[in-house]
Design a protein around this nucleic acid. Structure first.
Lengths: 157, 157
DNA sequence: TTTAATTAAGTGTATATACATCTATCATGC
DNA sequence: GCATGATAGATGTATATACACTTAATTAAA
C-alpha cells in the first residue's frame, strides 16, 4: 500500500471541491435537463439562448453578440452554423465590410415562440425544485463569478 | 416597429435569467481561468479533475468512474483519450472482459503532482475573489442542483 | 497616397459533450 | 450446451468550446 503514490487525502478532498469541476458537472446535468424539455421545439438550450439574445439585441455584429453572451468570437461563429442552416437566422455584411450583422429571421421568431413555453416549464421546474430563494442565490453568485473572472482576464491577460 | 415580431419584454427578461444559460456562461469563464492557470502543467482543468478522480477511486471501471463524475459514459471514453495518448492513464480489461479498468500511471501521478499547486492557486484566487462565504454558498447550491437534476432524470427518464 | 498598424471575422485543430447505435461479453433459462 | 436477454463499452454523428493563425477590410501614419 505504500509502494507508490503517497496518497494525500487533504489534496483529494480539496480537489473534490474544485469550483470549476462542480460548475462543469452542474452544467452537464442542467443542460441535459433543458435539452430534453426543449426537444419538441427542435432546439437545444444553447441555440434557444442564442435566438433569445438575438431578439433582444436586434441585429448585432458578431463581436457585439459575442460580448453580450460572454462567448468567444470563434465559438459563436460555430454555434450559429446550425441556426443558419435551419434558416432561423441570417448573416449579412454591414457598412463596414469586415462586420457581419446577425438577424433573427421570421422562421427564427416562430421557432422561438414555439420553444418559449417549453423553456418556461423547465425553468419553473428548476426554480421550484431549488426553492425560489436558493435559485436566486445561485443566479446571484453566478453573476458575481462571471464578473470576477472577467476582471481577472482584463488584469491577468 | 410593429410590422413583425411583437417583442415581448417579459419574455426577454425571463430568458436572460435562464438557469442553464447562466451556468454555461459561468462555466465558460471559469474553465478558461483554470485552464490558463494550469497551462504550465500541460493539463486542461477537465483532464486534471479526471486524474484526481482516478487517484481517489483507485482503479475503477469506466461505468463507475462515469457515475462518480456524473458524466456520460461515452463522454468519458472520449475525455480519457488525450490522457491515454500522453501515457498518464492505462486502460485494461478486467476479469469481466466487458469491463475496462482505468488506472493512473506513474507518469500520471507525476503530472498530477505538478499540476496540483497550480490548481490550488487558481482555486484560492476564486475563493478569495468571491469571498469564502459566497464561495461556499456556490458549491452548496451547485450540489443541490445536481441532486435535483439527477432525481428528475430518474423520475422523468 | 501609399504603407503600416489595427480590427472583424473565419479556419485549422483539439478537446468536451451526449444521443443513437453497434459489438462483445456475461448471465439465465431451457 | 445453446438461445435469449442484459450489460459494458466503443463508434458514428452532431453540437459546444476556444486557442493559434489566417484573411480581408478599415484606419492611421509617413
Amino acid at each position: 500500500m505504500h509502494s507508490h503514490s503517497p496518497l494525500n487525502l487533504s489534496r483529494l478532498t480539496a480537489a473534490a471541491n474544485c469550483t470549476c469541476f462542480n460548475l462543469r458537472k452542474a452544467t452537464r446535468v442542467v443542460t441535459q435537463f433543458f435539452d430534453e424539455k426543449l426537444q419538441p421545439s427542435g432546439l437545444l438550450v444553447n441555440q434557444f439562448t442564442l435566438l433569445v439574445a438575438l431578439e433582444q439585441a436586434g441585429s448585432p455584429t458578431m463581436k457585439t453578440l459575442a460580448q453580450i453572451l460572454v462567448m468567444d468570437r470563434t465559438t459563436l461563429t460555430r454555434n450559429l452554423k446550425p441556426l443558419l442552416r435551419q434558416g432561423l437566422i441570417s448573416v449579412e455584411s454591414g457598412q463596414d465590410q469586415r462586420e457581419r450583422i446577425v438577424t433573427l429571421t421570421a422562421a427564427g421568431q416562430v421557432a422561438l415562440a414555439k420553444a418559449f413555453p417549453l423553456w418556461e416549464e423547465a425553468q419553473q421546474q428548476v426554480i421550484e425544485g431549488l426553492g425560489k430563494e436558493q435559485w436566486q442565490t445561485l443566479l446571484s453568485v453566478l453573476a458575481s463569478t462571471v464578473s470576477l473572472m472577467q476582471r481577472n482576464v482584463e488584469i491577468g491577460g
